[in-house]
Deep mutational scan, measured.
Amino acid sequence: MAAAAAAGAGPEMVRGQVFDVGPRYTNLSYIGEGAYGMVCSAYDNVNKVRVAIKKISPFEHQTYCQRTLREIKILLRFRHENIIGINDIIRAPTIEQMKDVYIVQDLMETDLYKLLKTQHLSNDHICYFLYQILRGLKYIHSANVLHRDLKPSNLLLNTTCDLKICDFGLARVADPDHDHTGFLTEYVATRWYRAPEIMLNSKGYTKSIDIWSVGCILAEMLSNRPIFPGKHYLDQLNHILGILGSPSQEDLNCIINLKARNYLLSLPHKNKVPWNRLFPNADSKALDLLDKMLTFNPHKRIEVEQALAHPYLEQYYDPSDEPIAEAPFKFDMELDDLPKEKLKELIFEETARFQPGYRS
Results as ranks from 00 to 15, higher is better:
A2W: 00
A6C: 03
A6G: 07
R15E: 02
G16Y: 08
D20M: 01
G22C: 06
Y25C: 00
T26D: 07
S29R: 14
S29M: 05
Y30W: 00
I31W: 13
I31M: 06
E33I: 00
A35P: 07
C40H: 09
N45V: 11
V49F: 10
R50P: 11
I53A: 07
K55F: 01
P58I: 13
E60P: 13
H61V: 09
Q62L: 15
T68W: 12
I72Y: 01
L76D: 01
L76T: 00
E81S: 05
I84N: 14
I89T: 00
A92N: 08
P93F: 00
P93N: 02
I95K: 11
E96M: 05
Q97T: 10
M98R: 06
M98V: 01
L107Y: 11
L107D: 12
T118E: 08
H120K: 13
H120I: 11
S122I: 13
N123D: 02
H125R: 00
L137E: 07
L137W: 09
I140K: 11
R148Y: 08
K151F: 06
S153I: 12
L155C: 10
L157H: 04
N158P: 04
N158R: 09
D162R: 08
I165W: 06
G169F: 09
L170Q: 14
D177K: 05
H178A: 01
T181Q: 09
E186Y: 05
A189K: 08
A189M: 06
A195T: 07
E197L: 08
E197I: 06
M199R: 00
N201S: 00
S202K: 09
K203S: 10
K207L: 12
I211L: 05
S213E: 08
C216S: 15
I217V: 00
E220S: 03
S223P: 07
R225H: 12
K231L: 11
K231F: 06
L234W: 02
H239P: 10
L241D: 07
L241F: 11
G245F: 10
S246V: 04
S248T: 13
S248Q: 04
E250F: 02
I255A: 11
I256D: 08
L258M: 15
N262K: 15
L267N: 00
P268M: 06
P268E: 10
N271C: 09
N271S: 01
A282M: 01
A282E: 05
K285C: 04
K285G: 11
D288A: 12
D288Y: 14
K292C: 07
N297V: 08
N297C: 11
P298G: 01
K300R: 11
I302D: 09
E303P: 00
A307P: 10
P311N: 09
L313G: 09
Q315V: 00
Q315C: 05
F331T: 01
F331C: 08
D332C: 01
D336Y: 14
L343E: 10
A352V: 12
R353P: 06
P356V: 00
G357Y: 11
